Simulated scan of single mutants.
Amino acid sequence: MKRSLEERLKEGTVIAGEGYLFELERRGYLQAGSFVPEVALDNPEALKQAYRDYMNAGSDVVLAFTYNAHREKMRIIGKEDLLEPLNKNAIRLAKEVAKEHPKEEALVAGNISNTNIFNPDDSESKDKVRTIFAEMVKWCKEEGVDFINGETFYYHEEALIALEEVTKQGLPAVITFGLMGENILRDGYTVEESCKILSEKGALVVGMNCFRGPDTMQPYLAAIRNNVDGYVGGLPIPYRTTEEHPTFFNLPDGGCSCHLPTETTFPTALDPLYHNRYELAEWAREAKDTGLNYIGLCCGASPAMLRAVAEAVDVETINSKYSPDMEKHFLFGTDKTLQEHNLKYRLKA
């Protein structure tokens, strides 16, 4: 039988693969800017392959790609009539792929996220946010997800509303924050204070995702771990954020000489700023040693990066058979059948 998220957390580290937003834009199936996952209706096979690639790279979770598929985003692109079909099809496709796992059926998570309309001083905005979450969680319940992933919140109260709506439907909740450059949530809470409250109010996992790379997220993850008794998750972006530029929204590229549409590398010129997979693996080991239970990567992550993270915490993935092995490489290998005349050039190539 398929174990629940809580059962898996009790037994060891859970790997959660995210990053569909950037990956599907990179593959040509999603528009940067609006970042609405119309791919669930327009190119369902492309979405299924992305799900499959991350699952095969080690993810225990197939996260239904409904990030930004909420009423406000659909209003902006003029397609509110497609809101429910998009949400439900994204979940159904995730369930199909989850069943393909050769060892144990993967978990399927519904997905809600920051709405960008929450205003702590506007009660009407709070009502709209609650309605957005309520309808999306209801569809998740109807489609039979295993839990809800609520992510990228930068207001404590918006995250709390999300948790309340998930709890009403009787589903487990993973709630993670995207911490902006102010290093504090925008309604005044520290991220560790907020996570402690949400955990005490019933969130199964609390933590952080997106916006920050490992270097600028890990100190906050450690603080959350020190303040929370329950399970803690961390899913950084794979970019080299710094203390001066803690998020990827304003991350500069000193070598870029061309004009950029937004005068920042975000979101379509971040390529030179990637961490390599070995650096991400080092972070994963540190995260596990810190006591994190739910580990993954977010926007920008490739399946190969996720596989390196999973293997770093001793998880053998479906596609570990394709992990790097340089033994037979013509320049760098050690296999006795390689050509000696090539090997002598390995340092000059």
Score class of each variant (00 low, 15 high):
Ser4Asn: 10
Ser4Glu: 02
Glu7Asp: 13
Glu11Gly: 04
Ala16Ile: 05
Tyr20Asn: 07
Leu24Ala: 11
Gly28Glu: 04
Tyr29Lys: 15
Ser34Phe: 13
Leu41Pro: 12
Leu47Ile: 14
Gln49His: 12
Ser59Leu: 12
Asp60Lys: 11
Glu72Asn: 04
Met74Ile: 05
Ile76Arg: 03
Ile91Thr: 14
Val97Cys: 06
Lys103Glu: 15
Ser113Ile: 05
Ser125Tyr: 01
Ser125Leu: 02
Thr131Gln: 01
Val145Tyr: 01
Ile148Met: 00
Asn149Gln: 03
Gln169Phe: 04
Leu179Phe: 03
Met180Leu: 11
Gly188Ile: 05
Lys201Cys: 12
Met208Ala: 08
Gln218Pro: 03
Val228Phe: 01
Asp229Gln: 01
Tyr231Gln: 00
Thr247Asn: 07
Leu251Thr: 09
Ser257Gln: 12
Thr268His: 14
Ala269Asn: 09
Ala269Arg: 10
Leu280Arg: 10
Trp283Asn: 06
Ala284His: 12
Tyr294Gly: 00
Ile295Phe: 06
Cys299Phe: 08
Gly300Leu: 13
Gly300Ser: 11
Ser302Tyr: 11
Leu306His: 05
Val309Leu: 01
Val315Gln: 10
Asn319Trp: 14
Ser320Leu: 11
Tyr322Val: 13
Tyr322Ala: 06
Ser323Asn: 13
Lys328Ile: 14
Gly333Ile: 02
Gly333Cys: 04
Leu338Phe: 11
